[in-house]
């Protein structure tokens, strides 16, 4: 599973990265996490708010940090 965090580096992006990492570890999937900080690349995903969560190329959450349970659900949906 490939997790990407879109954001230019404000504190919320860091919080989202940590939340995604924690949820992925709890789920026990093999995963890699990548931070996308370049604004041109971010815009290529079509999001208008940051940070955004992308799982295997699909935008899952925009401008928010999902709560732990929701995060797990988003990640496990993506892994299917």
């Amino acid at each position: 599973m490939k997790i990407q965090i879109l954001g230019t580096g404000c504190s919320k992006c860091k919080a989202l990265t940590e939340a995604a990492e924690r949820a992925a570890k709890d789920l026990g999937f093999p995963f890699e996490i990548e931070k996308v900080t370049d604004i041109e690349e971010i815009m290529a995903f079509g999001v208008m708010m940051t940070p955004a969560l992308v799982v295997d190329g699909e935008v899952k959450a925009v401008g928010k940090i999902p709560a732990a349970d929701d995060m797990k659900k988003l990640l496990s949906d993506g892994a299917k």
Partner: peptide, 17 residues
């Protein structure tokens, strides 16, 4: 509209494009 300065740039581009 929910707004945050860290989203100013993506928002701007999203609107203009």
């Amino acid at each position: 509209t929910p707004f945050c300065s860290c989203s100013a740039v993506p928002l701007f581009i999203g609107f203009v494009s």
